[in-house]
Design a binder for these strands. Structure first.
Lengths: 250, 250
DNA sequence: CGAACCCTTGATACGCTTCAACAAGAGTGG
DNA sequence: CCACTCTTGTTGAAGCGTATCAAGGGTTCG
C-alpha cells in the first residue's frame, strides 16, 4: 500500500554495496541474537536461548515492507535482529516520513506494549530485515523468573530515553550546521573515516532538515575544510572544529 | 550560583496564586507518595512503605535550587514528590535553559543511574519542591524482591519514551501554531477551560519557541476565535479547529 | 516612588524550506 | 547497443516562519 514500487538500486555517487536492495532475501539466517538483546554483561544459558526461541515469532521482510502500523495495538515487544528498520509517522498522502532508523540487533519498540497503547509510530524495513515479535503475555511471566534479563530490558529502555532526550535538545537548540556536525562526530566513533550506511535523504530526515539543506551544509563543512566528502565516504579533517560547531558556537 | 535572585512574584495579568514563590517553605509534609511512584494498579503494603522510606533521602528545595547538575554521575533514582522541577541544559553564561518540566508526584530521572552515566541534564526546582533520592545500590536488590514494583518502574520509563517520541515528532514536523495548539489540547484534558500552571516563558521554552512567538500565536488563535485568553486563564472555544491546527493542516 | 519582573507588540534579519532545474548512475526494453 | 525512465544528490532563486532586538505597559516588591 505504500512506498517502494521498484527500488532499483540505491544511491549514485560512491554507492556503497551495503545500500543495494535486492528483491530476493539473502542469507538472513533466522536466528535471534539474544545475547545482544537481553544478555548484556552476564551470558545467557543455552536452555534460556531455547526457551526464548520458542516464544518469539521471526519475520523476514523485504525492503519497504511494514513491520507495524501506528494505529495497531501493541501486544508484543519488537526487535530488529538483522537489517535496518525506519520509524516515523505518516505524512501527507499516506507516505511514511522517517524520524528514526535502527539497525539490528536492537530493540525496536519496547515501550508501547507495556503501556497497553497503540504503537504510535509506523515501522518499516529500510532493507532486507529480520524482525522479532515477543508477545508480552509470554514475556512478562518469563521475565519475572529472570530478573537479570528484566534489568537488561530496563537498561535498553533507559538508553532510548537518553537518546531521545539528546534528540529533543538538539532539535530545540542546535541549527542545521550543529546537528550535522554532531551527527558526524557521533557516527564516526573513534576513527576519522566514516561510510554512510543510509541514503542522505534518510539522514536528513532524522536530523529534521531537508535533503537540500543537508547537501548545502556538507558543502559548507567541506569548504571550511572540516570534512572531506567523496560520495558516501566522509573523512573528518578537524574534529575540534566540528565539535565547536556541534556545540552551537561559531 | 544561578537563576533567581529574588523572584518577587510571578506573572502579571491574571497571576494565579499557584505561581507565587514565597521564601519560606510552606507545609510540604516530607512524605513520598509511593503508591503513585511504584504502586500503580496493585497497592503497596504498609511494611513496604516503611522499607522504602528507610532507603530514600528527601530534600526540601526552595524555588531555583539545584536538584542535580548534568555532569554529576548518577547513582540514584530521582523523583519529584511535590512541587515542580525543570530539566534542561546550560545555555550561554551559565544560565539554565528549560526543556521540560515535571510536576510531582512523578519520576524525574529514572534512566541515568541504570546506565551508570552522567545525568546529562540539569534539574532545578521551579517552585518549592520536595525531591526524593533513591540510591540505586539499595533500589536494585529491593526491586529484585518486588517484581511488581520493578515492572511499574519499567512502565514509567516506557511512558517517558512515549512522551519524548511525541516531542521529537512535534519539533520535527509541526510549526509553532501546531505545537501550541497540541499543547493546549493536551493540557486542557476533558474540560474546555485551562489555567496555566507555569509562566508563559517556561511553556514557550518547552515548545521550543521564544516567548514573543508564543504571545503572537496566542493572539492569532484568539483572533480566529479558537480560544479566549484572559491572562493565565484560557478557554478552548473550538476544539476541532485546534485539532486541525495541531495536525499541521490549515 | 523606583526597581525588577513579566508579557506584549513592532521592525528587522536570518535560517531554512520550497520549487525548479540539472547531472549522474542504473535498470529496462527496443 | 541505444534511448528512456526512475532514482539520488546537487545547485540556484524566491518566500515563509521564527528569532532577535527594542520599546512600552502592567504588576509587585522594597
Amino acid at each position: 500500500m505504500n512506498r517502494p514500487r521498484h527500488l532499483h538500486l540505491a544511491p549514485g555517487g560512491g554507492s556503497p554495496g551495503s545500500l543495494r536492495r535486492p528483491h530476493s532475501l539473502p542469507g538472513l539466517l533466522p536466528q535471534a541474537d539474544w545475547q545482544a538483546l537481553l544478555g548484556g554483561a552476564n551470558p545467557l544459558s543455552p536452555s534460556q536461548w531455547q526457551q526464548l526461541d520458542g516464544m518469539v515469532q521471526l519475520r523476514r521482510l523485504h525492503s519497504g515492507e511494514v513491520v507495524f502500523l501506528r494505529d495497531q495495538t501493541a501486544q508484543s515487544l519488537v526487535a530488529v535482529c538483522q537489517g535496518m528498520v525506519g520509524l516515523g509517522q505518516t505524512g501527507e498522502g499516506q507516505q511514511f516520513r522517517l524520524e528514526r532508523s535502527l539497525a539490528g540487533p536492537q530493540w525496536l519498540d519496547l515501550h508501547s506494549a507495556w503501556l497497553g497503547e497503540l504503537r504510535g509510530q509506523n515501522a518499516w524495513a529500510l532493507r532486507p530485515t529480520l524482525v522479532l515479535d515477543w508477545p508480552l503475555a509470554l514475556a512478562r511471566p518469563w521475565l519475572e523468573q529472570h530478573p537479570a534479563a528484566l534489568e537488561q530490558l530496563l537498561r535498553a529502555l533507559a538508553a532510548q530515553v537518553r537518546e531521545l532526550t539528546v534528540a529533543t535538545h538538539d532539535l530545540m537548540h542546535k541549527d542545521a550546521n550543529g546537528r550535522v556536525a554532531a551527527w558526524l562526530l557521533q557516527h564516526a566513533g573513534a576513527g576519522d573515516q566514516l561510510r554512510l550506511a543510509e541514503r542522505k535523504r534518510e539522514i536528513a530526515a532524522q536530523l529534521g532538515i531537508t535533503p537540500e539543506t543537508l547537501s548545502r551544509v556538507m558543502r559548507q563543512l567541506s569548504n571550511k575544510e572540516l570534512v572531506k566528502v567523496q560520495g558516501y565516504r566522509i573523512d573528518l579533517l578537524d574534529r575540534d572544529g566540528l565539535q565547536k560547531m556541534a556545540s552551537g558556537k561559531e
